[in-house]
Computed example of a mutant assay.
Amino acid sequence: MVLEVKGITKHFGGIQALTDVTFQVEKGEVFGLIGPNGAGKTTMFNVITSMFPPTAGEVKFSNRTLTGMKPHDITKTGVCRTFQNIRLFPEMTVLDNVTVGQHCRTKSGVWAGVFKTKAQKQEEEKIRLKAMELLQLVGLDDYEDSFAENLAYGQQRRLEIARALASEPTLLLLDEPAAGMNEKETNDLFELIQKIKELEITVLLIEHDMPLVMKVCDRMAVLNFGKKIAEGTPEEIKNNQEVVEAYLGREEEEELA
């Protein structure tokens, strides 16, 4: 087991965003977190990564308690995420956006950078080569010198994933990576997630594109009004009547049948 979310509750004043949510993510799987808008999915990501402290409950990663840790320290443990809204550095090059993601793994200090020591130069070259490997993985190696703001939308999504991978996570949280994508871009994303899984990186995925979710996920949990209403394989979720009524709907059910 890589991730254990146990009894997570989160209040914002009088609003109860999450109520006693529990699930586990196994090593090497793609685990989906689905549900209607406002169900608490992104709030759960924010709790896992300590952007929000939980009102109650605990999050463990590889048997280490994440609850109460600083977000940057959680990244160092091997947990990284993307966001619903793309958060790139638009006026930096594609390559530089990825190298920035490796900052938590670098060893050279300020003075090594000032004096350009041999060790610092070697580390800088290693970072560049790693970034190029990741750009090749996401299909952006021909755009290394382009500015991030000049990429197409789907390419920017893939660049954000490459930057997250640069931190060398063992657990990658993807928050609606297919949002706004066309059919080809979504198919490319499916193939990319499969490649990430082959690298033995566990993936926790929030997504509304149900054909993608059903195809790429090994298991999933369903949230509705901040409560978990189901958990299981795609087939089990597709045939769960409560999920159909709360989220999938009759039309979606027919499409997935």
Rank of each mutant, 00 (worst) to 15 (best):
K184F: 08
G78C: 12
I34R: 04
K60G: 02
D96V: 00
R157S: 08
T19S: 13
D142T: 13
A119G: 14
T65V: 15
Y143T: 06
L88A: 10
L159S: 01
E198Y: 11
L151Q: 01
K118Y: 13
T186N: 05
V2P: 00
L18H: 02
M132Y: 08
A257G: 12
M214F: 08
T9H: 03
E26M: 14
I8P: 00
T202M: 03
P177A: 03
L212C: 11
A39L: 08
E231D: 06
G68I: 09
H208E: 09
L223Q: 03
G13E: 01
E251A: 10
L140S: 01
Q16S: 05
A39H: 11
L248T: 09
E123M: 04
R157E: 03
T99L: 01
Y247L: 02
S167Y: 14
V222T: 06
G38E: 13
Y247K: 02
M92Q: 10
T186Q: 08
P53L: 12
F190M: 15
L172T: 06
L212G: 04
L33C: 09
E200M: 02
P71M: 04
S167V: 10
M210N: 11
I74S: 03
V100T: 06
K121E: 15
M132A: 08
E235W: 01
L223F: 05
N224L: 01
E253W: 11
V59W: 09
N187I: 14
L174A: 11
D209V: 12
A148V: 11
I161Q: 05
C217A: 15
E207K: 05
A131Y: 10
F83A: 03
E198F: 06
A230M: 00
K41R: 13
L3H: 03
K118D: 14
A112D: 15
A230L: 06
N187H: 13
T42N: 05
A178C: 06
T49H: 07
V59R: 08
F31N: 02
D145R: 12
S167R: 12
P90Y: 09
E168K: 14
K10E: 06
P211H: 11
N37C: 15
P177H: 05
I161L: 10
L3T: 05
S62W: 06
E144C: 07
M44T: 11
G32K: 02
E231C: 00
I196D: 09
L95S: 04
E255G: 00
L171S: 06
S108N: 07
E255K: 15
G14C: 01
Q241G: 01
E149N: 09
C104F: 05
E242C: 10
I127F: 10
T117N: 10
K70W: 08
F12L: 00
T117A: 13
K126V: 07
E231I: 07
A178T: 04
D218R: 12
E242W: 00
F225M: 11
V94L: 04
S50C: 13
V47G: 08
K121R: 15
I34M: 12
V30K: 02
L151P: 01
I206G: 01
W111E: 13
I196Y: 09
H72V: 08
N97F: 00
K130C: 04
M181Y: 04
A230V: 03
K227T: 14
